[in-house]
Write a protein that binds this DNA or RNA. Structure first.
Lengths: 242, 242
DNA sequence: TAAATAGTGTCTATGAGACACTATCAG
DNA sequence: CTGATAGTGTCTCATAGACACTATTTA
């Protein structure tokens, strides 16, 4: 052990921020991926990866600000829900050296988002989630990160109001229930679902209704934006959701 | 935007790993802190801080390995429970520059631990947790990190078997209930507690009993080491624990 | 009218909370 | 026996699940 350690005594790992951005499109859970460039020196050329990149210590005040900046760059909108998923670091995940990525987890309504095309920006696309991952093989350890994010999403959906952030500002109870069912991959009982959600008082009924070729449905919006409610019991009948 | 970004185009933040190590001693929740050196050039000399330090990219395979190494160096034992709390990074938290710390969260039985004294290692001590923090003011943003860790602990205690990791390998149901009560800061109903815990099948009864000046108590141990059980309902009667 | 989706009434089962009760040890 | 802590019996209440029922729109 050195008696005096200087800051420069340790090699600093490469540090990035990546995003797992989920949305539900056409009754399917999707995640936004970007294609890596084929520039010389860039690892995993042409592979699909989570959007993200290096921290800009001159512009980014802190990690979350960096995540918000990248989110805005990729989608052009503020996410109604953003939380930290965790960090993934090690010697082998990036061929350029010991690296760490800070991963944030975002939920968006599908009509909010038009993946930024254009210019010399990398191509980005929504990929349907099938089971534990997407069909494509991903760059770096992003498949593992995506698995972790999916586990977190599905676990939280069991007992929180998170799915509401995957819907536009106004929605019906049937639409909300459908989102739960898509993510959980199983049907929920209508009466029990409605009783719980309404009892939680997280929704505010609007004066408008959604018309169609049938009985019009009451429209609601979230009472508190950006805040997830924790239900005292998980959805579904199963005990031991973890 | 540069068309070609080199790895060296961005300043790399200082990267550390810190630990929040909880234990329960004398019916009080405690956290292990170390005193920072007064060496010239070291920030926050003499202040108390969470144990941790720089990643050694030559020795640490990944972030968790680094956390386990530091845990072993500080306490001399493997923690029965270790999870990532999150990362905290920004321009102002360390006077030496833009920095990030990866924080891990550990639970230990109080009899496992004798804070490593000795040599030129910094002094370390257990501090009782009062409400949101300890009495001392802490270095860096460690007070905020400790608040986050406490919130996570208390939230998880509401609906998981985490507190079992704060006990030695063999314990009685009364001892387990006491730990829950210490962390939650409120009394739990005995019958309901026992019914839940036993129904969850996370405990294995031993043939031995704990004798005393009263009816001997059945001893149990965890069925699955290192794995927390998630109960389908939170403890206590309150809805909306979050 | 039919088709379609919105929304409710009501029964049952489960498990938490309350709390009084019994059980088993040392001295 | 008493004192102390371990552990149970049993009632009530809240709510999830099941499922059949009614309500309101367009065509």
């Amino acid at each position: 052990m050195h008696p005096k350690l200087q800051v420069t005594d340790f090699e600093r790992p490469l540090t990035t921020v990546d995003l797992v951005i989920f949305s539900v499109r056409d009754d399917e859970l999707t995640v936004l991926l970007v294609q890596r460039t084929s520039q010389p020196g860039e690892p995993f050329p042409g592979k699909w990866a989570l959007p993200g990149g290096f921290i800009d210590t001159a512009r980014d005040r802190d990690l979350e600000a960096c995540a918000r900046r990248k989110l805005m760059e990729k989608t052009g909108v503020e996410a109604p829900y953003l939380e930290q998923l965790g960090s993934f670091g090690g010697a082998t995940r990036d061929p350029r050296g010991w690296s760490v990525t800070h991963v944030y987890f975002a939920l968006m309504a599908s009509d909010d988002i038009t993946p930024r095309p254009g210019g010399n920006a990398p191509e980005s696309r929504w990929f349907g989630v099938r089971g534990e991952s997407v069909r494509e093989s991903l760059a770096f350890d992003h498949a593992e990160i995506l698995r972790t994010a999916l586990a977190r999403l599905r676990s939280k959906v069991e007992y929180t109001s998170l799915p509401a952030f995957l819907l536009p500002g106004e929605f019906t109870l049937t639409q909300l229930q459908k989102i739960y069912e898509v993510i959980l991959g199983r049907a929920l009982e209508k009466k029990a679902f409605r009783t719980r959600v309404l009892a939680a008082q997280i929704l505010e009924p609007l004066s408008r209704k959604l018309s169609g070729p049938n009985r019009p449905a009451q429209l609601y919006r979230l009472r508190r934006r950006r805040h997830a409610h924790i239900f005292s019991r998980p959805f579904g009948s199963a005990d031991d959701p973890g």
